[in-house]
Design a protein around this nucleic acid. Structure first.
Lengths: 282, 282
DNA sequence: CGGCAAGTTGAGCCAGGTCAACTCCGGTGG
DNA sequence: CCACCGGAGTTGACCTGGCTCAACTTGCCG
C-alpha cells in the first residue's frame, strides 16, 4: 500500500480530482485501487464497504490517503481543513500536555476508527499524534457529509462507530477512576484482544504501543507498567515473549483481576449500598 | 401520556413534513403542553426545537415523560425497550460496580443530553442511576430514528450532542489519568460552570451532586474531596456557602490548578512580571 | 427531639510515584 | 567488525499523596 504513495506525492490536492482510474466516471465498474486494499473497504461492515461505487469514487477522489511516521503530530491547521480521519492501520493517540509537562494519552484510535473532529476546536482536546506508522485517509468533509446524508447504511454505521468510541471512552474513564495499576493493565490487555484486527479470539495478544505510551494511557508510570507485567508473568498469568506480544496463560485469573476482584480480604461490602444495584455479571 | 394522539393519527407524515404551518395542520398550531415547558423544546438549539409540529407531536405521542427519584436505577429490561433518553432536568449517572464493591461513576448526564444506548448491551456499560430527582423523556426509538432520518437539522444536532459526549468522556479520561486530587476537583468545578443551565458565566457554581457521588466520579474518596474543598477555601480560591453551592473567588488560580500547574517548581517563566503573562484564554 | 445518612476531621499506612543506576538493543560511523 | 550512542525498558531504594479506618459533627426528615 506504500508502493503507490509516490504517486500521491505528485498530486495537487486542491485542484485535481485525481481519479486513479479513468478520467471521468465512465469506468465505475470497479473500486479505486487504493480502496481495494483498504480495511475500510474490504472489512465487511466498515464505512466504505457501505458505499455504492459512485459514492466511493467521489469520496476517494476528494480524500487523501497518507502514511505518517511514529511521533508525527497532525497539526491543528491541517485538522481545520481535514477534520475527518479514517484510520486504516496503526495507532493514533489523542494527547494532552499539562502545564508542568505531564503528558496524558486520552484515547487510542486504531484501524476502523473514524475520527470526526468537526467542531472540536472550541473544546481543546489535545494533539493527534501517531504512536506507530499510521495509514490514514483524510476524508473530504463535504463528500462525507453528503454521503452520510444520502446513504442510510453508511449513516448508521458511522453513528455506531461514534457511539462505540463514546462507550470506549466511558469505559476507560471508569477504569482509570477506581482501578489499581494491575487491574488497569489487565483490563487493557483484554481491550487489546477485543480490538485486535484478527477477529478470532486468540490468547496471543499484541500490545500495539510502547510501554511508555501505555503508561500515559493508563495514567501510570513506565516503571509501574514494567513491574505489573513482571508480576503477572511471575504469577503465571501471562507469558511475555517480546515487548509487543504477550500470551494469556490464565484468562480467568486475568479476567478476575480486570474486573476488580481483590485477592481475598476486606470486602467492606454491601452495608451502605443505598441503591440496591443488581450487578449482572457477564 | 398520549392524550391527543387520535388527532395526530390522521396526519400523513410524509406529506406534511417540514411544513410548520401546513394546510390541514391548522389545528396543530401548538406544541404539546408538556413540551412547551421542556428544555428540549424551549432551549434554543436543542433537539425538539428543531422539529416541525408534526414531528414533535408524533414523537411526543409515542414517548414517555417521567420523573424519577434519586437513587432509582433504570433497569436493563426497560432500556431494551426504551434505549433513548432525553434528560430534561437533574443528573443521571452511568455507574459500574467492581467485583469487590468499589463503585465508579463513569459519566454524568445532565439537562440537554440525549443518551442513546441502542446496541450498548454487548459492551456492559453499567447501570443508569439518578443522582437527583430527574425528569427524563423516553423517546420512542422508532420515531426518533425516523425523525433523524428525515430532518437534517435534528440529525446534525444529535450528532453534535453525541460528539460532545464523546469529547467530554475523553477529557474526563485525561483528567483522571494524570491529575492530582486538587487538579481534578478544580477541573470539575469548571466543568460544572461550563455545563450549568444558566448560560451566563457566573462565579457562583452549583455542584449538582453529593460529595459522595462526586468522589466516585473523580476516582477519589469522599474524605479527600472534603479535604480538597477545605484546602481551596483556606487558600481563598473558592468560597463555600452550602454543600451544593460554591463561589469562585480566584478564577485564575483555580484555572492554573485545573490545568496542572504545580505550586512552586519548574516555572520556567523567568519572567520579572508574572502578571503580564496571559496564557489562558476563555 | 431523636435517628440516620452525609460530611468532616484526625492518625496511620501503603501502592505507586520519583529518582538514579543499570541493561538492552538498534542504528551509525570509523 | 567493533565502538559508541541514545532512547527504551528494567530494577532497586526511597518517599509521599491519598486511601483507610474510626470517631466525630452536621443536616435532614419524620
Amino acid at each position: 500500500m506504500s508502493n503507490d504513495s509516490g504517486l500521491l506525492a505528485y498530486i495537487d490536492e486542491r485542484a485535481s480530482n485525481r481519479s486513479p482510474i479513468g478520467p471521468h466516471l465512465t469506468m465505475l465498474h470497479d473500486a479505486p485501487e487504493q480502496c481495494k486494499v483498504c480495511a475500510f473497504y474490504y472489512d465487511s461492515g466498515n464505512f466504505c464497504a457501505k458505499l455504492n461505487l459512485s459514492e466511493l469514487h467521489d469520496l476517494h477522489d476528494h480524500s487523501q490517503l497518507e502514511t505518517i511516521k511514529r511521533g508525527t503530530q497532525i497539526w491543528d491547521h491541517v485538522l481545520d481543513d481535514w477534520p475527518i480521519l479514517a484510520i486504516e492501520s496503526g495507532v493514533m493517540s489523542l494527547q494532552q500536555i499539562l502545564s508542568d509537562g505531564r503528558k496524558t494519552i486520552a484515547s487510542f484510535f486504531m484501524r476502523g476508527d473514524i475520527i470526526d473532529l468537526r467542531n472540536a476546536a472550541n473544546r481543546k482536546l489535545g494533539a493527534l499524534v501517531a504512536l506507530s506508522e499510521v495509514t490514514v485517509c483524510r476524508l473530504s468533509p463535504e463528500k462525507f457529509e453528503r454521503i452520510v446524508n444520502a446513504n442510510e447504511d453508511a449513516r448508521i454505521l458511522i453513528w455506531e462507530n461514534l457511539r462505540d468510541q463514546t462507550f470506549r471512552a466511558i469505559a476507560h474513564s471508569s477504569d482509570l477512576a477506581k482501578k489499581s495499576s494491575r487491574e488497569k493493565l489487565a483490563a487493557f490487555i483484554f481491550e487489546c484482544q477485543r480490538r485486535s484486527p484478527s477477529s478470532h479470539r486468540c490468547d496471543v495478544v499484541e500490545i500495539p504501543v510502547r510501554r511508555r505510551d501505555l503508561a500515559e494511557y493508563l495514567g501510570m508510570q513506565p516503571e509501574t507498567i514494567s513491574r505489573c507485567f513482571k508480576d503477572f508473568e511471575k504469577r503465571g498469568i501471562i507469558g511475555v515473549s517480546d515487548l509487543s506480544t504477550i500470551r494469556i496463560l490464565d484468562a480467568p485469573a486475568l479476567r478476575q483481576i480486570a474486573n476488580g476482584a481483590r485477592p481475598e480480604e476486606a470486602r467492606r461490602s454491601s452495608g451502605h449500598n443505598a441503591y440496591n444495584i443488581l450487578t449482572t455479571s457477564a
